[in-house]
């Protein structure tokens, strides 16, 4: 076979391969986008049409008015706006709290030697193992002892205690060259200055990636908010939307669907906006 033949055959394979690849990837894309799209279309129809099972593939444009209506704090209606705000505040507090707490503890473990250092490290390691779901009942009992049931702190604090972020930071800190620390010490920087002037600026990308992961983690919590907050005013959007589809008598399906869309929007936007950092941070944090 001549070189030209070979090249032609390779190109032929490549084109055929590309068609298959496009087909598979388009199907995958549809698998994820189509369900969301159908729900979005449903949200713009009126309840009667939905109840008859009359759902097409195109949204009813005037039906879009449901979104501003749901988002305006109207008395009597479902407090979607408040649930969104609470979810946002909770996700933000969890992400910021975890980053702050882990940054400090990782700094202590990586840049100091002190008695009990390995003990602390292993303690953190064990924390990593048990997701909040597994220890939900005992955690509730303890939080109840602290009188934090039905409080924002009770919602956030137990989700802030985890070691994933600490380990990620520690890993990043280990890679900081010794000479850089030495240069800073020769320049007269103490531990706090080094943290503020060198380490935090150097950890910006890690923090951004971690923020996305933790924001999504916080926003998507369901079981803990369900258990710890019995007061409907402390319903997060995730708890609220599941509650909305609960009773079968409910007929305002378009509202339910619109709320479902709204519940997914913020974390999705955060992920898409910081896609590259997030993917890098995620795959590296598990290493």
């Amino acid at each position: 076979m001549t070189g030209a033949d070979l090249r032609a055959r390779l190109r032929g394979n490549l084109v055929a391969g590309n068609l298959v690849a496009h087909a598979v990837l388009l199907m995958g894309t549809a698998l994820f986008l189509l369900p969301i799209w159908l729900v979005f279309v449903g949200s713009t129809l009126d309840s009667g049409a939905i109840n008859r099972g009359d759902i097409g593939l195109l949204p009813r444009l005037e039906g879009l008015a449901i979104y501003p209506r749901l988002l305006s704090p109207a008395p009597g209606g479902v407090p979607v706006w408040r649930m969104l705000a609470l979810s946002f505040a909770m996700a933000l507090a969890i992400a910021a709290g975890k980053i702050a707490v882990s940054l400090l503890s990782a700094y202590a473990v990586a840049f100091f030697r002190f008695p009990g250092r390995m003990l602390c490290f292993w303690l953190l390691f064990i924390t990593l193992m048990l997701p909040v779901e597994v220890r939900i009942i005992p955690t509730f009992a303890v939080v109840a002892d602290f009188g934090m049931v039905n409080t924002f702190a009770g919602l956030v604090l137990p989700l802030t205690a985890s070691a994933t972020a600490t380990l990620l930071f520690r890993q990043a800190f280990v890679l900081v060259p010794d000479e850089l620390v030495e240069a800073a010490r020769m320049d007269g920087a103490g531990p706090w200055r080094f943290l503020r002037d060198v380490l935090i600026p150097l950890s910006r990308t890690n923090m951004a990636a971690l923020f996305v992961i933790l924001f999504v983690y916080g926003w998507n919590q369901y079981l803990w908010p369900l258990v710890v907050a019995t007061d409907p005013r402390l319903d997060t959007i995730t708890v609220g939307i599941v509650r909305m589809i609960g009773p079968e008598s409910r007929t305002a399906w378009n509202e339910v669907m619109a709320t479902a869309i709204l519940a997914m929007l913020p974390p999705t936007l955060v992920v898409l906006a910081m896609l590259r950092w997030f993917v890098k941070g995620l795959t590296e944090s598990e290493r």
Partner: peptide, 15 residues
């Protein structure tokens, strides 16, 4: 298009 569903809450997927 294949990465973003990471952001969907398990509960929201259920809904």
């Amino acid at each position: 298009a294949l990465v973003w569903p990471y952001a969907v809450a398990p509960a929201a997927a259920g809904v």
